[in-house]
Amino acid sequence: MQCQMCDNGNDIVSKCVDCDSNMCFECSTFHSRHKNFKTHITEKIESTNIETSEKSKLGEDVCDLHKREITLVCESCNSAICNECETQSHKSHKHCRITFQAQKRRDFFQLGIGALKSKITEVDGTIEMSKSEENSYYKFCKQGKEEIQAHAKRSKEIVCNIIDVLANLNLQKIEEIQKKDIKSITYFQMNLQQRSCLYNVFSETRKMQ
């Protein structure tokens, strides 16, 4: 960038904030010494800042080499170029209009997006299927548990009934045995009483003799 204070075409080295003007070295020296500008604030401008400022003014769609509008794409180098690049450093290369290349890439991205959406739909379907299978599995496990519990309950009832039947049979046998034993004991006691009576009669008879 050139000085805004003079017409000498010198490169700028500083900027006066109050004047909002870029200055070369000579103008900056004069500006700082002049009594009317002594209170002004100046800022030093680095060369990198100048290049950045120039590029920002030229815009992103301008060739860095020729400062012309980028209108083409070099397919051999895969880089954006201007018309002068086409006739010079990229003369023997294959190139096309940047609008065509942009549309081509948009179409490519659209295809990629379509494939991605299709894949997402497929994944969503797989997720739903896995959820359905998971629900079926839990339902199957629940049903199996309920069947096992019901079978165990029925088996328990059957076993308890069998035990009750066996217990009743044993009780009946014990009662029958008890009745027989009581009958035998009663018969034995009656025999003892009869013998005792006979013994007493025999004893009395002997005493009388």
Rank of each mutant, 00 (worst) to 15 (best):
M5C: 13
M5A: 15
M5P: 00
C6K: 04
G9S: 07
N10I: 10
N10K: 09
I12P: 00
I12N: 00
V13F: 02
S14G: 10
S14K: 03
S14D: 10
C16K: 05
V17S: 15
C19Q: 07
D20G: 09
D20I: 09
S21R: 15
M23A: 12
M23K: 02
C24G: 01
C24A: 04
C24M: 04
C24K: 00
C24D: 10
F25C: 06
S28V: 05
S28P: 04
T29K: 00
T29E: 10
F30V: 12
F30L: 12
H31N: 03
S32T: 06
R33K: 08
R33V: 09
H34A: 06
H34K: 04
H34F: 02
K35Q: 05
N36A: 11
F37Y: 11
F37D: 04
K38Q: 11
I41K: 10
T42M: 10
T42V: 13
E43S: 06
K44D: 08
I45R: 03
I45L: 10
E46L: 10
S47I: 11
T48Y: 02
N49Y: 13
N49Q: 15
I50E: 07
E51R: 15
S53T: 14
K55E: 15
S56T: 15
K57D: 08
K57C: 14
L58R: 14
L58T: 09
L58G: 08
L58I: 12
G59E: 04
G59N: 13
G59P: 10
E60V: 15
E60F: 15
D61S: 12
D61W: 12
D61N: 12
V62W: 01
V62L: 07
C63N: 11
C63G: 13
D64T: 14
L65I: 12
L65H: 11
L65F: 05
H66Q: 05
H66K: 09
H66W: 01
K67C: 08
K67P: 01
K67T: 13
E69H: 09
E69F: 12
I70Q: 06
I70A: 02
I70Y: 04
I70P: 00
L72R: 01
V73K: 01
V73I: 11
C74L: 07
C74I: 05
E75S: 02
S76P: 07
I81N: 05
I81F: 01
